[in-house]
Design a protein around this nucleic acid. Structure first.
Lengths: 255, 255
DNA sequence: GGTAAAAGGTCAGGCCACAAGACCTTTTAG
DNA sequence: CTAAAAGGTCTTGTGGCCTGACCTTTTACC
């Protein structure tokens, strides 16, 4: 009802102007999402152009322009010759701080809402996983947890962290939930690497380990309320860290 | 991890083939969604072509082809002359039963997952609304509830129902939640009208009234657990009805 | 150390969906 | 009866994308 007044007389929110996503837009978005979600970690190489053509089903110029955009924002670095390709840059937040300021800060309110939503959804996911958990679902969680606790490098920790949360989602037995969780992660991470934890945040890192352990136990024990509470708090802290990073970026931009 | 094996060697789910949505696809999808969500009820007329051009920012041939598709599936009926336009057909499920069978049945598993997800999400929404409710948020809910209880025609009930659930979402204070809820509704309703309740389902209708009343009261009283339980059950029942309708369609198709 | 393979870099030609705009036809309110 | 408001039709122009061939750079491997 309110929409009808707010949106310039449009009888439905669906009738807002259409933004025909071009193929280049789509590919650039996909690649950026894949990087943000952690499918390609800093230092790793994206598939070769001709491989991406095959995977994505688009032409080479399209892929090239998409990659050129990522390069333009400082997300990847192009190397030529054999073993060349688009390499994800280390800690690309710093190099693209300017881009972050221009892209993210104006939409900050939206990000706060997304943080909130993600906390709620992941809480719900954890509770549901605790209710429906099946013995065979616990196995991957145990594995990921072990990998996380024994991780030496931030990269390993990140991979294990991702695997763990994915395992929790999978334990709900609903693929749509996995997709929703992944989508939220992508929308939140579009501006910065998955876990923007520099060297100083190792402490949180370990606290995160406690969180993961407690979350696993509450799910394994079938305690929905506890699982929900832990997950929600966990993702709140995660959001808090990103806020800190952003605050630093903002400060750096104003100085 | 598993994805890397399952998806034909793709290193990331984001690298599946791109489907560049054409402008026509997008517009047709928007219109169908708007109808499915109940922004345009049976018997009502869509905005005129030239109006849609203005709203959607696309060219006339594009709008025309999109509308032609809706006509092709039997969703709208075109009338010419003054006061002409695309009118939403009454009970278009029946007229397009064949389309339903070909479109929906193959994806039935996905729909079951969406029903499940919707129940969980709406439960979470209700609980959150109960926790965060603000006096000014309760007003629209009361209004919609009153409208629902005093509705004479199914159409009025439908409008009020939609307004009520939207008000609950709004009470969470998070616009992203409103969008998520709307998106889920759209994805579920894409095949059939919002509330596929024929004359025989009036009983459920009334029970729905009880649900709405109880939901409002638990939110107003600030009882998250009760609100969550009511909402979840409410949407489970809703899903059950759609299952019934589909079962009937399937039976009609096999006979 | 040479060479071929594997990557990125460049370019030209052709196609198709879409945008813009003018104009025709049908219906109906007034 | 007439003009307005709708859908129906057509033409023309353009931009984005695909195809495909070829060039350049680097490096693994013989």
């Amino acid at each position: 009802m309110l929409d009808r007044v707010l949106l310039s007389g449009a009888p439905s929110p669906e009738l807002r102007p259409v933004r025909v996503a071009s193929a280049v837009d789509e590919v650039a978005d996909r690649l950026l999402t894949a990087i943000a979600v952690g499918d390609f970690l800093p230092g790793e190489r994206l598939p070769a152009e001709r491989e991406l053509i095959r995977l994505l089903g688009v032409s080479r110029p399209t892929v090239r322009e998409a990659i050129a955009r990522l390069q333009g924002v400082g997300v990847v670095e192009i190397r030529r010759g054999r073993n060349g390709g688009a390499y994800v840059r280390d800690s690309w937040t710093e190099s693209s701080a300017a881009a972050v300021r221009h892209t993210l800060l104006p939409r900050w309110e939206e990000f706060e809402q997304l943080f909130d939503l993600r906390g709620l959804v992941e809480g719900m996911v954890a509770a549901t996983a605790a209710r429906r958990r099946h013995p065979r679902d616990l196995e991957p969680m145990r594995e990921a947890l072990a990998a996380y606790l024994s991780a030496r490098t931030p990269r390993d920790a990140q991979t294990a962290d991702s695997a763990f949360h994915q395992a929790v989602c999978a334990a709900t037995g609903n693929p749509q939930i996995v997709m929703l969780s992944r989508d939220l992660l992508a929308r939140i991470s579009l501006g910065f690497p998955v876990e923007p934890w520099g060297k100083g945040e190792r402490t949180h890192f370990h606290q995160g380990g406690e969180d993961h352990k407690a979350l696993y136990e509450s799910i394994a024990a079938g305690e929905p309320e506890r699982a929900e509470e832990i997950a929600q708090r966990h993702f709140m802290i995660s959001a808090e860290m990103i806020r800190d990073v952003l605050a630093r970026v903002r400060a750096a931009g104003e100085s």
